[in-house]
Design a protein around this nucleic acid. Sequence first.
DNA 1: AAAATATTTTTAAGCGCTTAAATCAGATAG
DNA 2: CTATCTGATTTAAGCGCTTAAAAATATTTT
Lengths: 338, 338
Amino acid sequence: MANIYDVAREADVSIATVSYVINGKHNLNPETVEKVARAVEKLNYKPNRVARSLALNATNLIGVVVSDISNPFFSPIVRGIEDAAGRKGYIVVVGNSDEDWEKAGKYLDTLINHRVDGIILSPTSSFEKLENKLGGLDKPIVLINRSSTSFKCDTVESDNMLGAEMAVKHLLEMGHTRICAFSGPLSVSTHLKRIEGYRAAMAEWSVPIRDEYIVTSPRHNDMEFIRKSVTGLMTGNKRPTAIFAGSGKIALNVLKSVNEMNLRVPEEVSIISFDETEWASLINPPLTTVGQKTYKMGQTAAQILLERIDHGTTGNKIRNIRLVPELNIRSSVRALLS
Amino acid sequence: MANIYDVAREADVSIATVSYVINGKHNLNPETVEKVARAVEKLNYKPNRVARSLALNATNLIGVVVSDISNPFFSPIVRGIEDAAGRKGYIVVVGNSDEDWEKAGKYLDTLINHRVDGIILSPTSSFEKLENKLGGLDKPIVLINRSSTSFKCDTVESDNMLGAEMAVKHLLEMGHTRICAFSGPLSVSTHLKRIEGYRAAMAEWSVPIRDEYIVTSPRHNDMEFIRKSVTGLMTGNKRPTAIFAGSGKIALNVLKSVNEMNLRVPEEVSIISFDETEWASLINPPLTTVGQKTYKMGQTAAQILLERIDHGTTGNKIRNIRLVPELNIRSSVRALLS
DNA sequence: AAAATATTTTTAAGCGCTTAAATCAGATAG
DNA sequence: CTATCTGATTTAAGCGCTTAAAAATATTTT
């Protein structure tokens, strides 16, 4: 593969000149530009970005760490990042943490070795264990999806509390009061915020909160746990009329459990879910959801990161952006005329 | 950020020695190793991969081009790639082509400039226009999802013809003969193969093929076209008893159209779909599908690519792997007792 | 026409690594 | 005691670019 020396020889100029015409700088004689262009064309010269990166101390690479790229929640985020980054000439390298901070840490080391210009990271639980590593970094970082209380840096997330409030208020407005919330582990800030939103909405409507109506999975995606909880709650005598599912995955499991019990939605139980999914509008009945702006989240995170990369990591104050979710009213919530 | 000179100075050795201990080569005095290790630790030294890449002419980067990472079909593929690549110390950079060969071409140029060690590419239509660019490359390439007749290189795809045969035979076995096939543009090899499979299955069962039962969208995801076609077919007098949807997206649109017409599935029309989706088992009735092994596809592609990277791009013969799809029988196909 | 100035191109050092070849210090042999 | 060999470390060149500073050339000015 031809290098800059080959081009220089072909065009009968110095490598400096080649470099200058390729980067479009300096005062160049138009004839020289033409000569070099011809040589580039003839030799099919592709400037070596790794040499350039070494010289410039900038790779035009941005690193992304998500829990799982095959999760339909994360993939639009990555797409948003890629689009925003691509427009500015950056390429995106992606890794999966599987919610495992050690795995995330290893991947971060690799990214650092590769000298990515910046990192977008979706914090896992035990995220604080990575904070030293990130703190000592001279490259900008932006957090997505979840925030960290201890580590201060730009963050783009959904307004989870508001989203939950929107969902629960919708149920309240439809006449429900016996509203049950299914949540993932509260060690995860998103879930915690959603439960806070649930509480806030209930409080605002002065509806007493029963502890047994707040069910918290100890782990993500624990189908067994959810099945048991749904069965327990829906066979009791004071059974809820509505369920707020704290995530798309939880909604899926709740739905399956409810189907297994042959309970009709929304006649016997109304369901509203956090997270908009591809199938929400497809199932029967179409599922009412509070959707997160995932693409926007990625896009915004990338924009902020690129600003930092351009203007140095020091300036400005730290930004914490909360995207407002949107309520998609469909047919899984029925009006309760009490 | 400390470099190899800093470490050498701190450990009071030459940079060559530092390099040797970091890469674990050569005859090293254990004491020296220890000394260097301490210096590395103390200075929090992170070897600069870009300098290493330049010296070694190998970046440990692999480039991936898919139509759309946020498409649930592609994201597990990318995950499979990432997992296989990560195990061997490679990182993955991903770009989206949006089925646009020019966009794919631009991204390929970027990848080449960055000197990725290999490329995994999902061909778009008009893929042949990229063949020069790819042909002149001295880096290995593997194609996924779709193959190219003209460009010869390793390919990992689903056995689309077989998958369609499996689907259509299932319908035939259930007693259907008036089977309609909905397909994407036949310029795309996957769709072409699936229609071939449809024809083969029909032929094998000696069921005459009616041309009007093969409906081909001119574009991907043309909801209007599908709605019209479904309406047309299902209001005629010789209406089909079953529909084979040539992709998950098509199934989604067919399903919506069928719902709009208030046709009951499977009582009035049976449906089977290519592609397994997250929602297939969730909808009512649960959708019978022929699922592709997407994760495996990515993983296999990466393994083949890495082999080529290790053993040089020249050796061996070209491999063309066809993954066998799997039939997921659910409830959207009813037995027709004629 | 020489000096001063403006324009264009080149020289050369540096970015942080790898590695073949050279060097050096000990150990062993003659 | 010197020559030879072995093992450990260093020297130095090279990977392909960028860019400040120097040099060369062209254009104005006096």
